[in-house]
Design a protein around this nucleic acid. Structure first.
Lengths: 220, 220
DNA sequence: GACAGTTTTAGACCAGCGGTCTAATTCCGT
DNA sequence: ACGGAATTAGACCGCTGGTCTAAAACTGTC
């Protein structure tokens, strides 16, 4: 289902063959990975692709659309990793969190393997303009998180004393926060520690979402 | 203690009188609040201040320094709200979290009262370039958080199975996340709900930091 | 008061930005 | 071979943050 976002590549572009699409997407990816979104120069991408402004704007409505297409190419192969909210319908709380831990581990693994994907996605963490450029994708992802949490709530795995949208916000931001920590400290981490640490860090995501009756802590 | 950051205003500027400082800071604040950091136009600020490029660059090394000075003016009155790590030295876990909850409530209140301060700080949430412009301030704030968490750890209020820097990152990002949620939903919130909700939301910050022995949850 | 040296000031200027637009060219159905 | 549509090149636009020159204002010394 093609998005009607103003930042999608024009339909024409998708009709091009893969090698011709790569003509733009390869230099664009390199530029975005190297400089992020705002600091990336569209003129440089065009020059590096050996293309002209006219042709480029014929296929893309602007810099944002090029970023969208660049990200899309890397995101597409990941679609299979996500599970649907329906798969979580009949499950007990322990199973729910187990499934989420598994998904989290899989995504972590993918990010470690694909540094380019990781760099592109991390651009989204950092730059508001980049988020706006792919706001459709982002809204879809946010909706999926909220769907998963709603499913978790319906089986008693997720607290219901705070708005779901707040929980989804926090969940997403904790994910980002932990990912960023690992990205920043990956080099100085002894081999093997990373996996163990990553597993323990999952509790940073889980505990704030748990029903607070199960999670009293030292405060009344 | 003046910072040696390349983005501080030059010493000359601080020697100017308050009304003359406001000549730049008022238009700058308006521009940054309206457009954020990157989208703010230095040329517009200068024109709006009725100043010249030369004079402006005489007092500020660039746009970042102007942003720094703008933020500093709003942040200065808040210094008294923070407590020192030492004040947390001899305290039990319940007291530690109580003190943090109080601080959090105070800061929340301030943000509600001072919309300009809130908008400026939220620029920091969103724009990496803005963060870089005041990296000194940010590093100091991060260090204070880590200090507070270290104090909490020494009295058994904070978990020690994950690196302190990771906990500090997550704590800061959860703070930001929750603040952003309230900023986004403040309008559609019934009066009075906000305070209660905000109090409950504090658990989003606390629970991931608690020792996990006190916080087993449904997963082994 | 005259001069010299420093500090302050104005604003022209720079390269580069994302995006628009015109005009030439290529393509394609008839 | 023609005509209209799709495609393409790149000049051009207003704007950006930042640099630089040269004039003006200020300061201390005779």
């Amino acid at each position: 289902m093609p998005s009607s976002s103003p930042n999608s590549p024009r339909a024409r572009f998708l009709e091009l063959g893969e090698p011709e699409r790569a003509l733009w997407l390869d230099p664009a990816e390199a530029e975005f990975v190297a400089h992020g979104f705002e600091r990336a120069s569209l003129n440089r991408i065009i020059a590096s692709a050996g293309e002209s402004k006219g042709r480029t704007y014929h296929y893309f409505s602007g810099k944002g659309a090029l970023f969208d297409a660049t990200l899309e190419r890397r995101l597409e192969p990941l679609a299979g990793l996500m599970f649907t909210p329906e798969a979580l319908a009949d499950i007990d709380p322990a199973g729910f969190w187990k499934a989420l831990a598994t998904l989290s581990a899989r995504l972590t693994e993918r990010f470690q393997q694909d540094a380019t994907l990781a760099a592109l996605v991390r651009t989204l963490h950092r730059e508001k303009a980049a988020q706006e450029a792919v706001s459709d994708k982002l809204a879809g992802f946010r909706a999926r998180i909220e769907g998963v949490l709603a499913a978790g709530r319906s089986v008693g795995a997720v607290r219901d004393d705070l708005p779901l949208s707040m929980l989804a916000d926090v969940a997403l931001d904790v994910l980002i926060s932990v990912d960023r920590w690992f990205a920043r400290h990956a080099d100085s981490l002894p081999d093997g520690d990373e996996a163990a640490l990553s597993q323990r860090a999952f509790s940073l995501l889980m505990t704030p979402l748990l029903p607070q009756s199960k999670n009293e802590g030292p405060l009344s």
